[in-house]
Design a protein around this nucleic acid. Structure first.
Lengths: 342, 342
DNA sequence: GCATTTTTTCAAAGCGCTTTGAGATTGGCA
DNA sequence: TGCCAATCTCAAAGCGCTTTGAAAAAATGC
């Protein structure tokens, strides 16, 4: 059943039926009711393909996922982000178009989506410091929102980011206030913008407390459990091991925990661990007393809000590019305790 | 630049240009080259919305993800499945439309996708024993492929499944052959079809070895680490604890491992653990000697193959509904060893 | 050299919807 | 009653592509 057939059944023009269904004001309330009833009766549903052609909008938002080596993180964070965004899309009648690509083809995938008019906007995740995607998408003139920021990119763009620097500064300061003077940083890949900012926050806290910055106490790698374990082993086996760790993700912290336990040390007593927490549903760190002390910010909430920002951007193209900075929340757990200088 | 403009530039009709670009035989090779060159020069890309309207096909495949409590499993398995499928979609020019819904709205989401003509086919994941989605989609007359099976559904449908029963029968038999007589089953939710079949395989192996089937040695719950841990604790603290476990996922096995370690027992020596392994990239169980002995089958490969089956189904609607049963592969790790009756 | 194929190209009709610009009704007011 | 504005409805023109059916051009056969 299409619009033409429905309008014939009703003895109305397609125009009137279309307007009645889409809530335009210039149609009589009685007519509208009659149309709605008939639409329900005949199970009429406007064809989405025809509609998008006519309106010029695809009512669909693109996410491009590179199939990289570091699938772990992407998958986990991505799932929650998408879960948050997907709900908002649905509320506004948008679909979500997912494209899985080999690393190398990523820009190409964006270009195709844009040139084919397959999507009205895209989301960019996990930007590197000097991320190419941003200028690329700007040139394409397609609305997009970045989850995170790219420090080295000067052109304006819409973004939503957590204040990674202040999160790590606060976290490190907390450890220092507990009496820890040797604090190890187990960071994500430092080509990622968030990792760079986190290191800055850590560095600033250590320096302004008058402590020495030890390059041997910092590591940077993909955020996997084994990498956390390996880094922690390296640090704990030093002659002068750290008494506390600050980690970039719960997954890394789990690896650190394993190394600590393995050495017969007690988490939160002999060694403290503070972690950043994306609040991923697969890795809950909750309950009355969460295991880890964390700086927490929900990636799911971020997904939902990026979705809102993007939809606004699409519907109001001339509005200034929105940016938003969220602060991570401090959550006390049992993984931290007094240090040697308490 | 659209088709009309391009054809005017070339002094050809839209028909000829369209045919040249789409590889139809009735266009001169010289003309085709000229058209291709011009298309490249002017960066012409057919508008996907117009094309789908004209062809009646959306070139897009739908995945519906319910936002349930058991997000963990879904996310993890889903990510890998989708990674496999996405590559195949891309190769065949299909897009992937992801819809995130509340549990309750799942059927509705399928209906909408179908009635709006937004997708040419859908994938159904993680079917329950008597899954409603299957008959629902059959009624909708939309092509679909089920990843898994629904025992209680008698109508024919296209599916790809792993032989869960034989996988668990083989795994259990292996443990028995090692000399284990008390083997605990730590299963997924037994409303899920795969979990029911796994229990059958386990039961059959235990029975035909002449061992007694102990209901106290079987558990069924969401496949999370804490659930694996809890079940293992319960079993290990029995007066007559099991000497071996067979688990439905690596995540459960990790929980079991924790319970074992916590009791000062040695994995693969005092207690054996065999697990089913979806070969998820986030949870690698690889290397020269993998940690766990497993029955393995790649969910990513399954995703890719389901995608192929669905595309075939879409392009050849009259072909008989394909079904495919894969056997899981036995992988020897270090988590299993001789039992008390070796 | 003319009739017959075969090859190449074209005009035009959809696909199913939105939206413009205009016509038909109705109501209010002098 | 007549006139103007407000309300309601409509025909038709896109949106950009594919595809049908036919015509024009080139190749072939006798």
């Amino acid at each position: 059943m299409n619009l033409k057939q429905l309008s014939e059944r009703l003895n109305l023009s397609q125009t009137t039926v279309s307007r009645a269904l889409n809530g335009y004001p210039e149609v009589n309330e009685g007519t509208r009711k009659r149309v709605a009833a008939a639409a329900a009766k005949y199970r009429y549903h406007p064809n989405v393909r025809a509609r998008t052609l006519a309106t010029g909008r695809s009512m669909s938002i693109g996410h491009v996922i590179p199939l990289s080596q570091q699938v772990e993180l992407v998958n986990l964070v991505f799932s929650d982000f998408v879960a948050g965004a997907g709900v908002i899309y649905a509320e506004h009648g948008y679909n979500m178009t997912l494209t899985i690509v080999q690393d190398v083809d990523e820009l190409d995938a964006y270009r195709r989506l844009s040139e084919h008019g397959a999507v009205d906007g895209v989301i960019v995740q996990a930007p590197a410091r000097d991320d190419q995607r941003i200028s690329f998408l700007s040139d394409l003139k397609i609305p997009f929102v970045v989850h995170g920021r790219a420090t080295a990119v000067t052109a304006p763009y819409a973004w939503l980011d957590v204040n990674n620097k202040s999160a790590f500064q606060t976290g490190t300061e907390y450890l220092i206030s507990l009496g820890h003077h040797r604090i190890a940083l187990v960071n994500g890949q430092e080509k990622m913008d968030f990792a760079i900012r986190r290191r800055e926050g850590y560095t600033e806290a250590v320096m302004s407390a008058g402590l020495s910055l030890d390059q041997n106490l910092m590591s940077s790698a993909d955020m996997s459990e084994p990498n956390g374990y390996a880094a922690a082993c390296r640090f704990l086996d030093l002659d002068d091991p750290p008494t506390a760790f600050i980690a970039s993700s719960i997954v890394l912290a789990l690896g650190i925990k394993r190394a600590i336990r393995e050495r017969g040390l007690r988490l939160g007593v002999d060694v403290s661990v503070l972690s950043y927490d994306d609040d991923i549903s697969y890795l809950p760190n909750t309950g009355d007393t969460p295991l880890f002390t964390t700086m927490r910010s929900s990636v799911k909430a971020a997904g939902a809000h990026c979705a809102r920002m993007l939809i606004d951007l699409i519907t109001t193209p001339d509005a200034p590019l929105p940016t938003e900075l969220w602060e991570a929340e401090f959550v006390l757990g049992t993984s931290t305790g007094p240090g040697p200088f308490a």
